[in-house]
């Protein structure tokens, strides 16, 4: 029986950017972007679910983000997570990786004991691969980054195959340990129809508040109670709930600042156009010979 906590993130789909996404202060206007479940985090969740399938236990997914990040928590429930938590507060906004790892580590401490923390190696909006290791350091636990395969768990130790530059390592580590997972490590299981039916209505407090807005027949407190009864209430941890040091959260707690942002205007137009014909190729090769390339 092992308990896993999985760190998941909702990310802007950077491959499909449209409109004006950058705010004047250089941060990202996420509301302008389609938001998706960071794929490597889904693979991390799959790792945790596989451990549960084999050894039994529990899988908890947590995410730090704005209210709409609850979407991916529902998706975690659809895949098989037992419990999910939203870590959300205006005070967390604008966090860099250091401030993020601080809040996540405090949320993990509040959730309690665990054997594993899983996370994707990196998120596609920054590609930094920093939050996993930074969280592990704050929790004072070891880490295995770039995990490719779980080879087994025995005597309180997990054996992992992990990527290194030019090859791989087999490492064995005492639990608890934080593990970051590579894209190809596992195929995330599809959402289960039964679980979609069961959890599609799961809601955070903010979402319930929205429902009750402008409807005098609905009361948030009664709805919350009702959702809790039906196991559909998604707990949110705020800065107050976590009793965090606010100077270490959000933009205040972030040492890295965006000093300058330049939009990239990529213009087309080669110095010299070559016709896609046999003659064109002849001219090109002559030019390359002149350039002493060949």
């Amino acid at each position: 029986m092992f308990k896993s906590i999985v760190l998941v993130k909702q990310v802007p789909d950077t491959a499909n950017i449209t409109g004006k996404v950058m705010k004047d202060d250089g941060t990202v206007n996420r509301s302008m972007l389609p938001a998706i479940f960071n794929y490597e985090d889904k693979v991390a969740l799959e790792f945790a679910l596989q451990i549960k399938d084999t050894y039994g236990g529990k899988v908890i997914a947590i995410t730090m983000g704005p209210a709409r990040a609850a979407d991916i928590l529902r998706e975690c429930l659809f895949m098989g997570a037992d419990e999910v938590y939203a870590i959300s507060d205006r005070k967390f906004a604008g966090a860099d990786t250091l401030a993020t790892s601080y809040v996540l580590s405090e949320a993990i401490k509040k959730i309690g004991d665990y054997d594993f923390i899983f996370a994707g190696r990196q998120a596609i909006d920054g590609d930094t691969a920093q939050v996993g290791p930074q969280t592990a350091e704050k929790l004072e636990i070891p880490q295995i980054t770039y995990a490719e395969e779980i080879l087994g768990i025995k005597d309180g130790k997990i054996k992992i195959k992990k990527k290194i530059d030019g090859g791989y390592e087999i490492v064995q580590c005492k639990m608890p340990v934080l593990i970051t997972v590579l894209k190809g490590a596992a195929e995330p299981r599809p959402f289960q129809a039964k679980r979609i039916m069961a959890y599609k209505g799961a809601k955070t407090l903010t979402e319930l508040e929205k429902l009750t807005e402008g409807n005098s027949l609905l009361y948030v407190d009664t709805m919350k109670h009702e959702y809790e009864e039906r196991n559909l209430f998604i707990e949110t941890y705020s800065a107050d709930d976590l009793k965090v040091d606010e100077s270490r959260c959000g933009i205040k707690g972030s040492p890295t600042k965006v000093h300058k942002v330049e939009s990239v205007v990529l213009s087309g137009g080669s110095k010299e156009l070559i016709e896609p014909t046999r003659d064109g190729m002849g001219i090109l090769i002559d030019k390359l010979l002149e350039d002493r390339i060949f």
């Binding site: 950077t14 950017i17 996404v21 890295t256 600042k257 965006v258 000093h259 300058k260 942002v261 330049e262």
Partner: peptide
Amino acid sequence: FGGNIVATII
């Protein structure tokens, strides 16, 4: 950000 910007971080 998907290469839409070049950022200078300090």
